[in-house]
Design a binder for these strands. Structure first.
Lengths: 330, 330
DNA sequence: TTGTATGCGTTATCAA
DNA sequence: TTGATAACGCATACAA
């Protein structure tokens, strides 16, 4: 790779002039600038990003730490982040924490070493693993889940309200024993969706039977087991709120094996719309989250911070939308 | 962030010794090493990866350029790459070329600037956009699609054979007019799957009717349109091979709107297994590709190159597996 | 307007 | 076994 020295040599100027010319500094003579540019072009010069970062003490790289690369909700966020970052001249490093605090911690370490300009994270646990970012002054934006205790910009979806709306919808459709299948204790969205579910039952003056609630990992297999378990009890639910789309596939698998039909036997609503939601029979009623928009907003907030914005941290709460399809009525 | 100087100061040694001590160089006195480590720990020292990269002229970062972050096939590859890279101490930058040569080119530029140690790519087009990597001596591994002309390690799936097997299966099930819905001309997997389809028809002594073949982008919407178009012709197909899973959702949407039932009205096989493939009615017969394994193999090949392996480039071809479900028989 | 010289934080070479 | 020192490639303060 050609360096500035070589470009300087070829153009017959100093490296300082090359640097200025290529960065568009107006104090450089137009003729010289042209000579430098053509020399750079001739040599296929490409600035060394590492050296530049070392000198400038920052990189044009943002990081996005998500908890599951295979979850379409997060990849949609990634797309939003990437599009916004790209058009601001930043690239994006995607890291998959896999809901593991250890992995999250490792990535934070790597990102600090690599001096990324800022980090967008859907936090796996409490803030602990992310603290080094704060200590280092790296701007952080939390998405999907808040970072209790740490003050930072946050982009959320009002899961609790959405879960409430969905549950109320199920009740209004005449389902009597509505259950809830949600994620692990401590995962904010899991708890939030459960809370919204309970809010709705309380408002509808329904007895919220504790035995109609199940928790599992945000994965297909665990959800399938839990759903099967739930449908196996003495008085099984005839309605169910499921906390994300991977769990929804598990639930549908379990129902299929048990010969239960959505809508008719069990009113079903799940978080997150998916391309296949309309293909199952009956089509799945979902709570659609504005994932792409979460990504763009988060990136905008982060870029503002990187640009020096020092205002108080903001929390932006977007709304989800209930999309009623066949699985939630008889 | 604490630097080596500070650690050196606190431990009362030179930066050289700190460097050696922390990198586990055995020529350093154990007592001193311990003192250095505790000083580093006390100061929360974290090596500056940028400076290290500048000095070492390489980074512990691999890049993965894929053509669609939202396609589960590619995210599964990403997982494989990441797991392998992680355990070798490398992190992974994920880049989304979006099937755009321009984006691909931009990313290659960024990656060169950032001096990544190697690149795994599912090439969007011909090799043109990737040439700078070669010029720079950056190791490259192609996945999913070959890089014609450029000699590099490659991990492929034998799409052509798989398409042949799938089409033969459809013919054996008694479907008479078998069509094919594949990706754009020039995308290797698209062409390959079409070729395999033709191979099968030829072997089965079926007339391969050109009007039963459609091409569209590897996306849901385009596939839906093309499928609708295909089912609308005078003598529509009663069997269909679909070239990937996003196209499969489009196809199923079109069929649903036209009141066509898979299996009964149209024998259907699609590339790529998905969590939802068993949930649609009837369950979808698929050609399951070993995506995760593609990722791990590609990462291993790349790491070997980075480690100095200079053997002739290898092409590894993995096999896909036909998973027969309800959509391919009456 | 341009050039010289220095430093960013690390590692590697060379002496001691 | 350790330390002084010189790069790595770029950007800037300062001098010219």
């Amino acid at each position: 790779m050609a360096t500035m020295r070589e470009v300087a040599g070829r153009a017959g100027v100093s490296t300082a002039t090359v640097s200025r010319a290529l960065s568009g500094n107006p104090t450089v003579d137009p003729d010289l600038a042209a000579r430098v540019r053509s020399a750079a072009h001739a040599l296929g010069y490409r600035p060394n990003g590492v050296a530049r970062s070392l000198r400038r003490q920052t990189t044009a790289v943002l990081a996005l730490i998500i908890s599951d690369v295979e979850n379409p909700f997060f990849t949609a966020i990634a797309r939003g982040v990437e599009d916004t970052a790209q058009s601001a001249g930043y690239s994006v490093v995607l890291c998959n924490s896999d809901e593991s605090t250890a992995k999250e911690r490792r990535y934070v370490d790597v990102l600090l070493q690599e001096q990324v300009a800022g980090v967008i994270v859907s936090p796996t646990s409490a803030a602990g693993a992310l603290e080094p970012l704060w200590d280092n002054g790296t701007p952080v934006v939390a998405v999907d889940r808040p970072l209790p205790g740490l003050e930072c910009d946050t982009v959320l979806v009002d899961s609790r309200v959405a879960a409430n709306v969905a549950t109320t919808h199920l009740a209004a459709q005449g389902y009597q024993r509505i259950g809830c299948l949600t994620g692990p204790v401590g995962v904010h969205t899991a708890d939030d969706r459960l809370a919204g579910y309970r809010d709705a039952l309380r408002a509808a003056k329904r007895r919220s039977a504790a035995d109609l609630v199940r928790r599992a990992e945000f994965r297909t297999v665990g959800a399938k087991r839990s759903a099967a378990d739930l449908f196996g009890i003495a008085e099984p639910p005839d309605g169910l709120l499921v906390a994300n789309s991977t769990m929804a596939t598990g639930t549908l698998e379990a129902m299929s094996e048990l010969g239960l039909r959505a809508g008719r036997d069990v009113g079903l609503v799940a978080f997150d719309d998916s391309p296949w939601a309309t293909l199952v029979d009956p089509p799945l009623t979902v709570i659609s989250q504005p994932a792409y928009q979460i990504g763009t907003m988060a990136a905008q907030l982060l870029l503002a911070r990187i640009g020096g914005d020092a205002r108080a941290p903001r929390t932006i709460t977007l709304n989800a939308q209930l999309v009623v399809r066949g699985s939630s009525h008889r």
